Amino acid sequence: MTNNTLAIGDNCEVILHFDLKLSDGSAADSTRVNNKPAKMVMGDGSLTKNFEDCLRGLVAGDKKSFLLNADDAFGMPNPDNIYYVDRTKFNADTPVEEGMIISFAQPDGSELPGVIRSAVGHSVTVDFNHPLAGQSVTFIVEIIEVRDTGAK
């Protein structure tokens, strides 16, 4: 069911545009770049509780800006997500340079992006934390549609 007055709450599917800005005001991400809005389901575990709380009560057409600190956005960096890899594990055609993002194949066939933090001698430091981990971010959202999923 779709209507223009349904407020965002539990078990709602939300279609929205968002702009994500860092604390220095620089743009980190935006669904507007490719004009492809994001779709999310409240309560499915993909969003933090504080992020969901900022969306609750909004209806289609609403615009809102809110600041999330690192714990409520992408979390804090986890030292267990930093790996030291021998340079020989990289393809000879792949330049290994600080700041590069390289996709690593996982045993289940999925891909996991890692940021090269340093490459010294034969040791390459790869960080698998989210690139925005540890940073406070501002979300600017525009709600396009709210649907009741009917889930209880």
Rank of each mutant, 00 (worst) to 15 (best):
F104C: 11
V141K: 06
Q106L: 14
L47V: 01
D44H: 00
D86C: 09
A92H: 01
F66W: 05
A70H: 02
V126W: 03
I116C: 04
K89G: 02
D86A: 09
P37R: 02
L47Q: 08
S26W: 07
G9Q: 06
T88Y: 05
T149W: 03
F66T: 09
D148W: 01
V96L: 06
T125R: 12
P77I: 08
G114K: 11
K64D: 04
P77W: 05
M100K: 15
T31E: 11
N129A: 11
N3S: 12
V33S: 13
I101R: 13
I15P: 00
L16N: 01
G25I: 15
G43T: 01
Y84R: 10
D10T: 10
N78I: 02
A28K: 09
L132W: 13
G114T: 14
G150H: 07
A60H: 05
N11H: 13
L68N: 08
P79W: 00
H122F: 09
G150Y: 02
N3K: 06
D127Q: 09
L16K: 08
N35T: 09
G75T: 08
F128A: 08
T31Q: 12
A27S: 11
N50R: 06
N34G: 06
L6P: 02
R117Y: 02
D10S: 09
D53T: 03
V115W: 05
A105Y: 03
E111G: 12
V85G: 05
S103A: 15
G114C: 14
D29R: 14
D19W: 04
I144D: 04
S110M: 14
N81I: 01
E13W: 02
M76D: 02
E142G: 02
R56I: 10
D10A: 12
P37S: 07
N11C: 08
N50C: 03
V14T: 06
P131K: 13
S46D: 00
R56H: 03
N4G: 10
K63C: 08
D44L: 02
T5C: 07
G45Q: 00
D93T: 09
N91E: 05
F139R: 05
V59T: 15
L55C: 10
F90K: 07
M40I: 15
L16M: 15
K21M: 12
G9D: 12
K49W: 02
G150A: 04
I82M: 12
S30T: 15
N11A: 11
S103T: 11
R147M: 10
H17F: 12
V146Y: 03
F51A: 13
G121M: 06
M42V: 14
P37F: 01
D62P: 00
K63N: 10
C54Y: 05
L58Y: 01
K21E: 14
N91M: 08
E145F: 04
V126M: 11
T88E: 11
G150N: 03
R147K: 13
E111S: 15
V126C: 13
T2C: 05
A151P: 00
L132F: 14
V126K: 03
T94E: 08
V124G: 02
D19T: 15
N81D: 11
Y84S: 09
V59E: 07
G57F: 03
E52G: 01
E13V: 12
D71N: 05
V124A: 06
I8G: 04
Y83A: 15
I15G: 00
H130N: 15
S26E: 15
A119D: 08
D10H: 07
S26R: 15
F66C: 11
